[in-house]
Amino acid sequence: MKLILTHDVSGLGEAGEVVEVKDGYGRNYLIPRGYAQAWSKGAQKEIDQINESRRKRAIESLEDANAAREALEAQTLTVTKTAGANGRLFGAVTSADIAEAATAASGKPVDRRSINVATAIKSVGTYKATAKLHTDVSANLTVEVVAE
């Protein structure tokens, strides 16, 4: 079965790619979840136009991503949370909290889904995280968690 991916699917491809998959996988998993649509000549022309516009925007966004990476790596992001006397947080620092601090620091929007933290942040201290700003650009973040 020939399909056009509408979302990135790990192990299969990225959005806009034409892939050949087994009928059951396409019919029972990819299409019902909205990850793909059936291939046709009209759909292929539409995808080609979308890919062309993405290529044009990719050059601009790559420059923006490099500038944002330099701004984020140059400073320490501070997240303030409520904590107990022993330094344990009431809750945890989420990727949304880090994305909010990164957006404030860089001036460019950072999506919470692009933030990756190696371990859960549940106490006051300094932690490392990464942010994927572009397909080719990722920033290493230093996050300092302080108590309110």
Rank of each mutant, 00 (worst) to 15 (best):
M1T: 13
K2V: 10
K2I: 12
I4D: 02
L5Y: 04
D8L: 06
G11H: 05
G11V: 07
E14I: 15
E14Q: 15
E14W: 13
A15C: 08
A15H: 06
E17F: 05
E17W: 06
V18K: 06
V18H: 02
V18E: 08
V19M: 05
K22W: 08
N28H: 09
Y29S: 06
L30D: 02
G34E: 00
Y35L: 15
A36I: 06
A36D: 02
K41P: 07
K41H: 12
G42E: 10
A43V: 13
K45M: 11
E46I: 10
I47D: 02
I47P: 01
R55Q: 06
K56H: 09
L62P: 02
E63T: 12
A65V: 07
A68R: 06
R69F: 04
E70Q: 14
A71L: 12
A71K: 13
A71N: 07
A71E: 09
A74M: 08
A74R: 12
T76I: 11
T78H: 08
K81L: 08
G84R: 05
A85H: 13
L89W: 09
F90C: 11
F90I: 14
G91D: 11
G91V: 09
A92E: 13
V93C: 04
A99V: 03
A99Y: 04
E100H: 11
A101R: 04
T103M: 04
T103A: 05
A105R: 08
S106Y: 04
S106L: 01
S106W: 04
S106Q: 03
K108Q: 13
P109H: 09
D111S: 12
R113K: 14
S114C: 10
S114I: 05
S114K: 10
S114E: 11
N116V: 13
V117Y: 09
A118R: 12
A120E: 14
S123G: 10
G125V: 14
K128A: 15
T130N: 15
L133S: 10
S138L: 14
A139N: 05
N140D: 15
L141N: 02
T142N: 05
V143Q: 06
E144M: 13
V145Q: 03
V145I: 13
V145A: 00
V146I: 15
A147D: 11
E148R: 12
